[in-house]
Amino acid sequence: MSSSKRLCFSCDLKDNPDLIAEYKDYHAKGNAWPEITKSIKDAGIIDMQIYLTGNRMFMIMEVDVTFDPIKKAKMDATNPKVQEWEKLMWKFQQELPWAEKGEKWIALEQIFQL
């Protein structure tokens, strides 16, 4: 039995090639702020990958048993550097058409597994 779990999310970028290129640069290896990667790891996220097609992104997270999305949201809300990063990233991101107002990353429903 695995002690980790996979979670998948989606979010859109603004459909602007310059903004998409800048967003990709912020996420290139070694470019994410160290405070952000630390907050991710501190929340029990073992691995995180983001994929892009057009302006739609898909995030895959491997989390350990300590991961709690409510606790992560509270940690992020009280971390000034995370708030600064999220505000900056919102320059590039936009809600999915079916998202609630201000909702960024939407959990994906698994519909198939081999």
Rank of each mutant, 00 (worst) to 15 (best):
F9H: 09
T53Q: 11
P34G: 03
K74T: 05
D76I: 11
I36A: 03
Y26H: 14
S10C: 12
I60T: 12
M89T: 08
T53M: 05
P34N: 04
K87R: 12
I46Q: 06
K87S: 10
I50S: 10
K71M: 06
K14D: 08
I36H: 00
L13I: 00
D42W: 04
D15L: 11
G30Q: 04
N31F: 07
W33S: 05
D47Y: 13
F67G: 02
E62P: 01
G44K: 01
P80Y: 12
I70Q: 13
E86A: 14
T66P: 00
A73P: 00
M75K: 05
A77P: 04
V63D: 04
A32I: 14
K41C: 09
D18G: 01
F67W: 11
A77G: 06
E22K: 00
P34D: 05
A32S: 12
E84P: 00
I46A: 03
F67M: 03
M89N: 09
V82N: 06
D18L: 11
D68P: 00
H27R: 15
G30M: 01
G44A: 05
F67K: 06
P17I: 12
L88P: 00
E86W: 09
M61E: 13
Y51Q: 08
W33A: 07
A32Y: 04
V65D: 14
K71P: 02
M61K: 05
Y26E: 08
E22W: 01
L13F: 08
K41G: 11
Q49H: 10
I36C: 05
M48A: 12
Q83C: 03
C11L: 07
M75D: 14
T66L: 10
K72C: 06
K74G: 03
D64I: 05
C11A: 07
M89K: 07
I46M: 05
N55A: 09
P69D: 15
D68S: 08
T53H: 10
D25A: 15
K71H: 06
E86M: 14
E22T: 01
P80C: 12
I45T: 00
T37L: 11
M61R: 05
P80W: 11
Y23P: 04
P17T: 12
M61G: 02
G30N: 08
T78H: 14
W33V: 05
K72Q: 13
Y51E: 09
I60E: 13
D47H: 15
I60L: 14
I40V: 10
Q83K: 09
